[in-house]
């Protein structure tokens, strides 16, 4: 596939998207008005994404990665902190600029069938974002819909344009979802577990598709997953999240080969191993469950489950970010 002429990569150095001290808390109320606490889904996240890079956010379910994705998209209002896109904080955008921002960031969801309105055909599904963004000319919309379908390798487009979502396979549905995310020519795509609901046989195809679109267009791809085994080939950097925070970040090989944070080490240990010799070997799995986001533990959030916990430190003070290896950051008192 030939690289298209448009190149959104910015010559000026600087992150495309960054999060500063981002908090997204959901208030819990009783009887509709009494505040009884907050679920701290995202609790102090900092990162920077460079143009054209593919990153993965990895963590267990309930660690706040989907909330993070929705906060980045502006679907949730951050409680504190800010999201900065191309130098501007999302909080300062007016309605019109916010809409433009939404066109610049595509969203790929987990459940492809649920993500497509069942009463619209593929044509209408692809036209909708263009209509919303004021592309009045029907021929122009049709042309872009066909381009998008070609791009996700649903060709010839005529076979798919008048189909309804229930007539497509799961993989085809997810391709339509990706086409819809691409049709506004975004600078960045946020994919929230894009393959976890697909058959194993089509997962790799979809991931390769996302990856090739990302490299061809120089898009920034934020890829959210709970599955460390798939990220190796589809991301350049990895952020490991735990209980609403990023506990470790590093380039992909560095992180997979030299995990620093005890949580990351445990996660890597939990990856199913194709080697039959290891099948009967008991693994060291961290005891307990992820902490309640309503009342996270004091100090390091992982300390109740950590086998290398330093009493008096880990259960008292929040660990700052350390850089034990070059380009490898982790929030763990072990590397003080």
């Amino acid at each position: 596939m030939s690289a298209p002429a448009r190149d959104i990569r910015r010559s000026a150095a600087g992150p495309v998207l960054s999060a500063r001290d981002l908090h997204t808390w959901f208030e819990l109320r009783q009887w509709g008005f009494l505040r009884v606490g907050s679920v701290r889904a995202v609790d102090g996240v900092n990162f920077e994404l460079q143009a054209g890079e593919a990153v993965a956010f990895v963590g267990e379910s309930g660690c706040g990665k989907s909330s993070l994705a929705r906060t980045l998209l502006g679907l949730h209002q951050p409680t504190r902190g800010e999201v900065i896109f191309e130098g501007r904080s999302l909080g300062t955008l007016d309605a019109r600029e916010r809409k433009t921002y939404l066109a610049r960031v595509g969203f790929v969801q987990q459940d492809p069938y649920g993500a497509l309105p069942p009463f619209m055909d593929v044509r209408r599904i692809l036209h909708e974002p263009l209509i919303v963004h004021g592309v009045r000319n029907r021929a122009e919309r049709e042309k872009r819909a066909r381009e998008a379908l070609e791009e996700v390798r649903l060709s010839p487009p005529d076979d798919f344009l008048s189909k309804f979502p229930h007539m497509l396979s799961g993989g085809q549905q997810q391709r339509v979802v990706i086409a819809r995310a691409l049709i506004l020519r975004p600078a960045m795509i946020i994919a929230d577990e894009p393959v976890s609901m697909l058959d194993a046989s089509v997962r790799v195809e979809i991931l390769q598709l996302l990856r090739s679109i990302q490299t061809n267009h120089g898009l920034t791809l934020a890829f959210i997953t709970h599955d460390l085994s798939t990220v190796r080939h589809f991301a350049e950097r990895i952020f490991v999240m735990y209980a609403g925070r990023i506990v470790e970040q590093a380039p992909v090989n560095e992180l997979l080969n030299h995990p620093q944070h005890p949580y990351t080490q445990a996660l890597l240990g939990a990856i199913s191993d194709p080697d039959p010799d290891n099948a009967l070997q008991m693994r060291e799995v961290p005891p307990g469950e992820p902490p309640s986001l309503l009342k996270p533990p004091a100090g390091c959030r992982f300390h109740p489950r950590c086998n290398r916990m330093i009493p008096g430190t880990c259960d008292q003070e929040d660990p700052p970010e350390f850089e034990p290896r070059n380009g490898h950051h982790t929030a763990c008192w072990l590397y003080r």
Partner: peptide, 14 residues
Amino acid sequence: ESPYIEAAKAYGAG
């Protein structure tokens, strides 16, 4: 709460 509504919000539908 369905994902397609969320998707519509994510591309800016009013």
